[in-house]
Computed example of a mutant assay.
Amino acid sequence: MTTINAHQLGRLIDKTVDHMGSEYVETLHGIRLDVDAQYLYAVASDRYTIAVARYQLNADEQQEPWARTIPATYLRSIREWLQQIEGAGLVTISTVEDRLTFKSPHSELTISVSPGIEFPDWRGILRLQVEQAVDGSETFPALNPGFLARFNSGDTVRLRITGDDKPVLFFAEDFLGAQMPTKHAGLSPVGKEDFNGAHQAWLWTLAAGAKDASLDGPAFEEDRPRYEVTTDIRKTGEALLRQTLGSGWDMSGKSTRLPDEFLAHVIGAVNGWSAFRYLNALYNADPRAAAAIVAEVADELDSGEIGEFAWDAAKKAGFDPQKWHDDYEAHRKERAEKDAAKAETAA
């Protein structure tokens, strides 16, 4: 059993919720509560980012280590339940097999969890990154994270940290920016003011992680339904490249014995590569426009009406989709007649 006040538990969730994985990665679609002898941790990762928030437990409390992942579907209910408790009100968290129970003096909330669900060795992953950052440098500027979002212009940016009391520089194609450390705003950093101090503060936690931990592996990859459409521009590009390569591999496979099947693979490869090149060119020209069109196309594909959309687009562009349809039907009829004649001759 673990005890924490309602306000602090809510903060742990709020600090990590934006980092959890998508609904197509069951092992990452939620927040991991992880308890050791000293801390209660909330951990979330989408493989691109990872976030850990911790709360120091009462030293007198005999705490047995445990870990459970709260599925994303329950997070809203938990936050609403916590809001009904006074911030200083204590909440006890207990685990019984496939149940996680949150109990306050006047109410309780029980949710279903999967005790055996796999989760990354977050201690090991962060241990490796932190240890690699121990290079003797004293550069460790304090930044207001609220300002970082202002540099999200849709471009991929590169960073250059210039010093403790100097701005962090942001570079992108046709873009240059800088963010001043909090010292320039009259604010002092909260907590340890140097990297070695911060490293020491987390050393006990990270020491329990494996040195070869990673987020690679099938358990942490998306299990997206075959025809599920994504609105993420990076995943869209990945899907197009996989289609191109997959169709290319299929061209030399056993399924290419029939001309029609070979042609289908050729068309799949050509269209996949063409779409990727067009998307990549649009992204380089205008990342926001590329992201917007990917989201718009995803909605159109999800609607199941792309035939109607294509027909309207052809007419709007000045083409004659009815003629295309008539030519297609004539081709099918001619082909059917040829196949029938071949069958009659063979008989």
Rank of each mutant, 00 (worst) to 15 (best):
R68V: 06
R68P: 03
R68G: 02
T69I: 03
T69R: 10
T69V: 13
I70P: 00
P71R: 01
P71C: 10
A72W: 05
A72Y: 12
A72P: 04
T73R: 12
R76L: 00
R76G: 06
S77L: 01
W81C: 11
Q83R: 11
Q83C: 05
Q84N: 09
I85E: 08
I85G: 04
E86R: 15
G87H: 12
A88C: 02
G89I: 04
G89R: 04
G89D: 01
G89L: 02
V91P: 08
T92S: 13
I93H: 06
T95V: 15
T95Y: 00
D98I: 05
R99P: 03
R99T: 02
T101V: 09
T101Q: 14
F102E: 03
F102L: 02
F102G: 02
K103C: 07
P105I: 06
H106D: 09
L109R: 00
L109A: 08
I111Q: 07
I111G: 07
S112H: 14
S112R: 14
S112E: 15
S114P: 07
P115N: 03
P115G: 08
G116K: 15
G116V: 12
F119K: 06
D121S: 00
W122T: 05
R123S: 06
R123Q: 04
G124V: 00
G124P: 02
G124K: 06
I125H: 06
I125F: 09
I125S: 02
L126M: 11
R127L: 10
R127C: 01
L128K: 13
L128N: 02
L128E: 13
Q129R: 14
V130M: 13
E131M: 11
S137E: 14
E138F: 14
E138S: 14
E138I: 14
T139R: 15
F140S: 01
P141K: 04
A142W: 13
A142E: 09
L143Q: 10
L143C: 12
N144C: 14
F147A: 08
L148M: 05
L148C: 04
F151I: 01
S153D: 08
S153I: 05
S153H: 01
G154L: 01
D155A: 05
D155C: 01
V157D: 03
V157F: 10
R158N: 10
L159F: 05
L159Y: 09
R160P: 06
R160G: 00
R160M: 12
T162V: 11
T162M: 12
D164M: 03
D164H: 03
D165H: 01
K166I: 10
K166Y: 07
V168M: 12
F170G: 10
F171L: 05
F171Q: 05
A172G: 01
A172D: 04
F175V: 11
G177C: 00
A178H: 10
A178G: 09
A178Q: 12
M180A: 13
P181F: 09
P181H: 03
P181G: 03
K183Q: 13
K183F: 15
H184C: 10
H184I: 08
H184Q: 11
H184Y: 07
S188V: 09
P189S: 12
P189Q: 05
P189L: 10
V190R: 15
V190S: 12
V190M: 13
G191K: 09
G191M: 05
G191I: 09
K192M: 13
K192E: 14
K192G: 00
E193K: 15
